[in-house]
Amino acid sequence: MKKAFPILGLLTAALLSYALYQALVVAPTEQTMGDVQRIFYYHVPSAWTAFLLFFINFLASIQYLVRRDQKTDTIANWVVIALGVLVCIAPYAFRTLLPAGVYPSSVVTTGIAFVGLYFLIKRLFSEQQTDMLALTTAEVGVVFCTVVLVTGPLWARPVWGIWWTWDVRLTSTLVLWLIYVSYLVLRRFSSSGQTPVLAAALAVFGALDVPLVYFSIWFFRTQHPQPVVGGGGSIDPRMLRVLLINWVAFLCFAFLVCWSRYRLERTKREVEETQALEALLEPRSALR
């Protein structure tokens, strides 16, 4: 494990450089927007990575809450499986109700990823570790979400002529960012023993809020360009290739950062436990 970390680090560095070269040199220049459009190769992968990390945070938080009770754990398993099956069947059964440009296959992929990730996390992480995973993904997710919120206006200024607009995607991403910042603030301010439970409860609330935020603001106003991948828009296949390379590089980078943060948190908790134990065994050392 110790060796895997630097290897992954080198691999990520190489991949990121290659992706940078692809994005700045190889990818064709966009006809109307020009070179400004190249920020797209950072904006979109960051957004996908941030959403994925928040998604993992949600799953890990659910796990942390349900594992405390064997009965709810079993119920949660079946609910997750039922939801997965429903998500796989529903887009084909109600094909006409899908918004234009959303393919049933992409919805099914989401459903399978949801169930797969849930049981993967369940298998790989113990109860305490799910809490550490939730903390890590929230922190790194907030960083990637910040990148999205910074690169967006940088692109919007030359193209739209404005830095910011209260459009559905922008606003809901901002609200998502606010929810997870409040999550981190809660973790920072609550007393240590109760932090995991309170944070997990807040994470579940935040995830419940996301669709409501999206629908309310979608009804409110919309200006952001339609998604070009898996949506109604079209994209040059060369651009799509560069985008996907960048996404893989960003995923590796996010994984690397999460891993090192996770290790740091684990070490921190081990040190805290050892200190608490030492203080118990040797009352005088606590007074030093």
């Binding site: 929810i179 807040l202 935040g206 409501l212 309310s216």
Partner: peptide, 13 residues
Amino acid sequence: LLLFPITIPALLS
């Protein structure tokens, strides 16, 4: 800090 972000959709409605 906890209440306002979560309440945004309700407040908007």
